[in-house]
Each structure stands twice: as C-alpha cells, then as structure tokens.
C-alpha cells in the first residue's frame, strides 16, 4: 500500500494538469473573494456584494472567505482532480500496466484516495494562504488593523474545507470508476455541481416542499451549510444555511465514505479490459 501511495504521489506531482488546476483554483479564489469585491468597494460601485463592505475582506474573516468557494466552484475543480487521478488510468489503458506489476487493486485504489486526500489538503491550505495574503494586503492598503482568526477557528476551518474538498474528489473518483473514462465523468460531475444543484436550490426547492426536504440530504447543500456555519457569506452561490453546521459536517463525511466505498466495490468486481 505504501508503495502504491508513493507511486500515486509521484504521478500526481509530476502531472502538469494537477498544477494547472491548483493555479486556476487559486486565481479564482483570489479574484472572486478579494479582487472583484475590493475593486467594487474602491470604485464605490453598487453590486451584489457591496453590502458586505470592507470588513468582509479583512483578515479576521479569513475562514469564511476561504471556505466560500468550496461548496460549488472550487469543489468542482477538486472533482475534476479526482476524475483525473482515477480516470487517467482508463484513458491511457494503464490499469493493466500497473496491475500486471502485482499490487492488489484495492491497494492501488487506497493509494489514489490517500493521494487525493493529501492533494485536497494542499488545495485548502493554499486557498487559506492566498486568502491570508490578499486580506493582509487589503488591510495594509486601507490602513486597517490586522486581526487574525484564532488558531482553533483556523484549524476547524481548514478541517471543514478539507472535508468538503475531499468529498468532491471522491465523487470524481466514483464517477471515473463507474464510467471508466475521463470526459464523461467530468462533464456529468460539473453538470450536477454547477447546474442541477443550483436549479434545485433556486427553482425546485421553493416550489415543492419535498424537494426542499430532499435537499437537506444532498452533498452540496450540506457542504454549503457547513461553510455558512463557519462564516462563509451566503452571497456566494452554494453557501446557504439549510441545515446546521454539525449535521453538514456529518453528512459530508458520510458522502465522502460512501463515494469512496462505491468506487472500491466497482473497481474490485469488474474486469480490466
């Protein structure tokens, strides 16, 4: 298992697409959380987020700001990463190459999951890092006092972010194993995250009570609730307090395990052709 984990780690670190995804994640996080709101504030333009004003951009709001993107947009990128790590083996036909070397299928799979969990942590830490830098710069530019969140809050925030990001990565893994490809799982995963989830929340749930109830059990709204409970602004798409933060964390964790387990069952049973 440790050999498989090391191999997966090397494959991911050497893969240009992985770094591209990380770069896009960070650029999006900084642009939408800090640059655009700050530019709007500086220009005095009225817009969807102007009500939040300068205080929302300062270091003491770091945890909420860093978590805001994960329920939908940054989560979608982590989902793509999950698909790439597993689906690439189908696309390149490398499952047979790897498994002919003799490792157990589930050892290779576990190595992939562990690598993705590490990658998700790196993504979340990087988002927190660029967020801290951006907010410190804004505070300096506006001559505002710098108050950082407490260490406990910071750790809980990073833990929650990691939980949400890893859950989306596992959804990508499960889709890649189920569909034995890269393109289709990415497409379907993104349609679910970017379109279906938002349509359910914005259109179906207000109309039908049972949809609103079902929503409370879906991964997106629970991730959104967890982020909201830790201070993410509900102006961000996908961030909405439909359930409590504790329940959100539990449901997200349950989905993480369920996606990983479903992928494991499928991978173990099927022929590698």
């Amino acid at each position: 298992m440790s050999g498989s984990f090391q191999a997966e780690l090397v494959k991911l670190v050497r893969r240009p697409a992985a770094w591209l995804l990380l770069a896009i994640t960070l650029v999006l996080a900084v642009l939408f959380t800090y640059v655009f709101p700050y530019a709007g504030y500086a220009a005095g333009t009225a817009g969807p987020n102007t009500g939040r004003g300068l205080p929302a951009l300062l270091p003491d709001r770091l945890v909420g700001n860093a978590l805001g993107g994960l329920p939908v947009f940054l989560g979608a990128i982590v989902l793509i990463l999950g698909v790439l790590v597993v689906g690439g083996e189908y696309g390149w036909g490398t499952w047979k190459t790897v498994l002919s070397q003799g490792p157990y299928r589930l050892a290779v799979y576990a190595g992939k999951l562990l690598t993705l969990a590490v990658a998700a942590l790196v993504v979340v830490l990087a988002v927190f890092g660029v967020g801290a830098l951006s907010s410190a710069l804004i505070a300096a530019a506006e001559a505002q006092p710098v108050h950082w969140p407490g260490l406990g809050d910071l750790l809980i925030g990073i833990g929650a972010g990691w939980l949400i990001a890893t859950m989306w990565a596992m959804l990508g893994v499960m889709l890649a194993v189920a569909l034995r490809a890269v393109a289709l799982p990415v497409g379907l995963g993104l349609v679910w995250m970017l379109a279906v989830q938002n349509l359910l929340t914005a259109i179906a749930a207000p109309l039908l009570d049972w949809v609103a109830q079902v929503q409370k059990g879906l991964p997106g709204p629970n991730a959104g609730s967890l982020a909201a409970a830790l201070g993410a602004s509900s102006d961000t798409p996908g961030v909405l307090s439909t359930v409590g933060g504790g329940q959100g964390a539990l449901v997200v964790a349950a989905y993480l395990v369920a996606f990983a387990a479903a992928g494991a069952v499928l991978l173990r049973r099927r022929d590698i052709s």
């Binding site: 050999g3 498989s4 050497r14 893969r15 390149w92 190459t97 003799g102 490792p103």
Partner: peptide, 21 residues
Amino acid sequence: PAFYPYLSGRENLRVLARYAG
C-alpha cells in the same frame, strides 16, 4: 504498451517499480 505520457521512460519505470515493490 500503456504508460503515463507526461513522464519519461525512466520515471514510468520508477513509478511501476514502486507498485511492484
């Protein structure tokens, strides 16, 4: 043959050696 296109031949074999122990 099926290998990882973004790795060199040597890196591909090193990765596989890890799986193989």
